[in-house]
Design a protein around this nucleic acid. Structure first.
Lengths: 187, 187, 187, 187
DNA sequence: GATGAATGAGGCTTCATTCAT
DNA sequence: AATGAATGAAGCCTCATTCAT
């Protein structure tokens, strides 16, 4: 039941964004009464938070699993590939998440309670870089900056790709990203 | 007057985001009556659009001016520096509007009449890469992908810096970005 | 519930007229919350339209039923009597809606989807005159003009009576109308 | 100046009706500033009242002048003719006046201060009937009822004619009215 | 006297939330 | 536990009116 609602909420939020999504729509999509939603969630806010959590935790799980136990360069490739795949699969959701986050007030953002999670996630990814540095494969840049650099680049490219602003196919884009980040653009 | 309102709107939208920002707050911040806002803007929507336009046009002007007539590598440095500076100065605004320009859906950009502008802006930046390729300084990656890669990386780092997730000072972050993008992280 | 609201709306519109009537007043009169009104009507406009429809359809039903299957002169008397009775019972409403059905512009009647209805209603009444002409009881005036003449006269008298401008009792007024229209004022 | 405003107000009220007419429109039409209107009229309400007064007083003047010093039957014809002519010339105004009156609250209607005028006007017309009765030309119906009967009939027919619901030309309609009211419809 | 930019009260409407069944 | 009709707070916007120039 709670899960049905969560899935319905995901779909509606992904289709309409937070503010255009109405609780009644979600109830309808889930095939339950409006009141039922309030048995499981304290309100629309919490419902949204739960959807976001669900998504991000899934993302973390998939990406972390994709890179674990791989040598640094392979892990890097895997990260780029998995991130692309995940964003691609959930692009409707992220289209609105990224936007809606901007429509919440600072106070609300903190309510998401995801700051801590995000730091933690970035730290896990950072380990991939750390490992590469230890093994002498990566240069001695600050690992966190490298990861934020890389994840920003990936996000922007997924997004642009989703918007049809890039002609290349996804494999080719992934490969280009990998090359730039490993070897740089300077000849 | 129009300008006072625009500035107040910028502040309120930057602090609360679109939906939590109330027209009455903006009027109060601007020190005018609610009705006065409607003498200059057809509604809350248009007011937001104008704020966004104002910001982005200023950003373009500053960045384009910073990179023009510079040799490719200097231009690259200048781009990173100016983008950082601009985002830094307007971090409240961008926290809400864009963690990413791509944050807004195509429909939204079109609503702002900015689709054309964005393509144009990216093209201008892309020329900086093209030039470097012609001069044999940059490798033969697709210029647009390079630019989207770089702008994504920069935006994410500004954002993270603004959030206090990075300890280094800005100059050092800029330098790291420059090095990664030019020389890559692989040893 | 819908009916309670409709009745309350009738009362408030009849007392204050469309523009001075506030949705909140209607809700209060009906003993429901403002929002409840919007479960049944799309807005103030539709609510007004529905009140008007309700009234006019009832009027038609009563008048048509009163005149049907009667010989022309009896039908004429019945028309005058029933019209008086109906207007009398709803004088508050008609004081605002119609001193005259014609009071509303064509556009308005169309907005109410009542143009067709009104033509149809007049046609039904017209048949009473036609019948009288066929039977050689009525003179050969254009039937529609006769009906518009008669209904205008009746409406004005009801209205004046309602305003207290006439001293006679209603029966006497009805009789006078009947005599004037059948025999004329000329000796 | 006051007159210019009054004429402009007449035009705008006649075109849009009371509630859709905006003070700014009237000022624009009159070629004066909004504030100027408030030098001559205490507000929109009074301006409307003045327009209505102007109209009705003119109507009275024309109709009374048309019927005075005429033998009863000629006066009757003249009344019908002049009423038709006047309504015809001002149909835009009356289209809205009749409607808007219905949108004012009872309190407002009294503010028009026209009840007394209307009684007075009807009395003047009534004299035409009285005279006919004294001369033995008209039957012994209550004169006021006769006048209200007649004026209602005329108003309704003018209105229907204005709406295009009648095919005959105006002269023919006037003649029919005259015949019905004098001789009745019964053979 | 004339102007018209600025005012701000007040209305219609939406929709998250509640609670009696 | 589930329902969904009813609630009512709160926001955007309009426009008659004012008053400094």
């Amino acid at each position: 039941m709670k899960d049905t609602i969560l899935k319905a909420a995901d779909k509606i939020f992904s289709t309409y964004g937070y503010h255009e999504a109405k609780v009644a729509m979600i109830a309808h999509e889930a095939g339950v009464a409006v009141g039922t939603i309030y048995r499981f969630f304290s309100g629309k806010d919490e419902l949204y938070r739960e959807v976001v959590r669900m998504k991000l935790f899934e993302m973390e799980k998939r990406i972390v699993s994709a890179i674990s136990d791989k040598p640094p360069l392979d892990a890097l490739r895997a990260y780029i590939h998995e991130a692309f795949k995940f964003f691609e699969e959930n692009k409707d959701f992220f289209k609105f998440f990224l936007r809606d986050v901007g429509t919440f007030s600072v106070a609300d953002l903190e309510k998401f309670g995801l700051s801590f999670w995000y730091d933690n996630f970035i730290n896990k990814l950072t380990k991939m870089i750390e490992k590469g540095k230890k093994e002498g494969i990566f240069k001695d840049f600050d690992s966190k900056i490298v990861m934020l650099f890389l994840s920003g680049a990936v996000k922007n490219l997924v997004y642009s790709e989703a918007k049809g602003r890039i002609k290349q196919n996804i494999n080719s884009i992934e490969e280009t990203i990998f090359k730039i980040v490993t070897e740089g653009i300077k000849r």
